[in-house]
Design a protein around this nucleic acid. Structure first.
Lengths: 184, 184
DNA sequence: CCAATAACTCAACACCCGATGAGTTAAAAA
DNA sequence: TTTTTAACTCATCGGGTGTTGAGTTATTGG
């Protein structure tokens, strides 16, 4: 299906080049197709971008499950699940990376990411935390910190972050996330 | 000095709109000047961007000093100094925000931010940490996590992060940074 | 086999971009 | 005052962008 090839090319370009630099012509060329067809399929660049950023609802179940289970190892499970989400299979991570990149250069992208974090992450996850009133803030800051790590590894590619293997990342970061999520 | 007005307009535009959306014409209009003059002053858009991102060497001394002092309160001091740096006076924070925004849309921006984090932050700060071999990694992940918070508050503007006052941010985050920097 | 519908290409439009070069005004130096 | 130098504007170039509409090829259904 050509339509799917266009969508995959768009995902890849948006996640690697950002919204502005990912031109319709390049996406079309990647899919081996004329630029006009892309517009005919998706209507506009904005609509194509929105389609490229949409991800399957099941992608978040893994993360959600990490919040269930024994509190003492919550930080480790959440950190693991988060890295799986953003650094795992391209079908899930590319929309998320595209969202991140777009959130910085594109106003619509910022709104999309804001809405994703607010309603898809925080509102579903924070009720699972122990204690009450600042659970949303705790979940929000933990998510922000983990996204910071993802940005440093996957986008800015800071050598010392990229060169640290997954196991060591967990060892360094999980206790900190634990501290944010459930307190001292 | 008109030259300074152009530079300040550039800083503001780059930090708010990102590299691509901050056009020479808009910057010139902000400074009340013709677009051609901007090019004549700075040579090219890239050169203007580089000039807008350069910050005074004294800006980092505050952060560096936070690494000195008693280890038990290291996390709190570093978190405070970091937020001062990125959310303080515009002359310092705007180049940093511009760097962040550009790092995602512009390849040169990513290289600049990478170099800034690697040589201006990590190489100067990690020697001040206790213990030896993974000090650079600890400092790097702490910086990434704090930058994640800055992105969430200043760029994506997630409501729950923006709505948390400085004092509560320190209370939630400082212990986590402490954990990353000096271990459990 | 033929008609209808979808998939796809081609050429072009209007727009905005960064950059150039020549010309004009203002300030400083002689 | 005259000359030199800097500050600044104007019109324009070439190139890339998203989008459009007409035309062409392929695929499907009766």
């Amino acid at each position: 299906m050509t339509r799917q090839a266009v969508l995959e090319a768009a995902r890849s370009r948006f996640s690697q080049d950002g919204y502005a630099a990912a031109t319709i012509r390049k996406i079309a060329a990647d899919a081996g197709v004329d630029a006009s067809l892309v517009i005919q399929f998706y209507g506009s660049k904005d609509a194509l971008f929105a389609a490229a950023m949409s991800l399957s609802p099941t992608a978040l179940t893994h993360l959600s499950q990490a919040f269930d289970g024994p509190p003492p190892t919550l930080g480790e499970r959440v950190t693991n699940a988060f890295l799986d989400l953003w650094e795992g299979e391209s079908q899930v991570s590319e929309p998320l990376l595209a969202m991140l990149r777009a959130a910085i250069s594109n106003d619509q992208g910022a709104a999309t990411l804001r809405e994703f974090i607010q309603t898809r992450l925080l509102e579903q996850l924070s009720p699972k935390l122990p204690d009450g009133h600042d659970a949303a803030a705790r979940a929000g800051f933990a998510a922000a910190m983990l996204i910071g790590i993802v940005v440093g590894r996957g986008i800015v590619k800071v050598p010392v972050l990229v060169g640290t293997d997954r196991e060591s990342v967990i060892r360094l970061v999980a206790p900190a996330i634990q501290a944010v999520l459930v307190g001292v």
